[in-house]
Amino acid sequence: MSTVILLLITGLGLGALYFLVASGLSLIYGLMGVLNFAHGSFLTLGAFAGWELARRTGADNWLSFVASVLLGAVVGAVFAALTELLLIRRLYERHIEQVLVTVGLALSSVALFDGIWGTDPVYVSGPSWMGGTTDVFGASIPNNRFVLILAAVLVLLGIVLFLKYTRFGLIIRAGVENRSMVTALGIDVRRAFTVVFAIGGAAAGIGGVLAASYYGYVSSSIGGSLLIFAFIVTVIGGLGSLSGAAIAAALVAVLQQFANFYLGGTGDFVVVLLLAVVLLVRPSGLLGSKA
């Protein structure tokens, strides 16, 4: 029983990471039709920024931890917004080229991170409570899992409220459904593009700082390896659907944990299998609108 609880909560923690990446991917794809390969780099840069701050301010206090999470969000958002303004926007409506540009950015930014921070993992530490465990029905759960889950829930809530109650949120929701009609109402939908990139980048940046604490280290490849699973989550959840991404993130990560434990480390295969099954049975994903 305690194993099941441990796997479940650890899975949800990992799912929280997936969601922090997938939420931005899904919004960006939904609104703009761009599959953003540079999203992992937003995460990685956020992680490094958070680490730099934490190591300067003394990693072992909550204030510095919260500050590094916030810095990760800001850095991710700025990087993402610049990506949209400088690279994506020039290729308006040319989706393949837009994808290619993000591929190029992913390659060159990871190389740049290698150059700045080296190719070896940088070990991080946080507040001592984060490294400890809490007993839940007999299972010792590493505390950082709770922080991850809490952060993902807050981000989800924040995005939902933003989408529901702001003008940009309204434009984004409408644009995901029918972008050209939004412009036909006299709205410059491209400004919303920058906004979704910034939101996605912020979520990824938060994810970066938390991923560093989950894995215990930062490296230039941390974003790229999460990105692949985030892609899978995005497709399973239904491209463009935020709640789909949330459900799929939890589902994929929990399944992965259980398969890794009970089926001899086959978690990644089970996830790929799940993707194949979902796409064949329901090509639009769990909550995708159009096939």
């Binding site: 080229e97 540009v101 190029g104 950015l105 390659l107 060159s108 190389a111 740049l112 700045i116």
Partner: peptide, 20 residues
Amino acid sequence: RVPLSQPLFILGTLFILVVL
């Protein structure tokens, strides 16, 4: 020095420029 010492950085940037 940092960017120039990374071949992939130069290639990636070159690639972006070609696409653009």
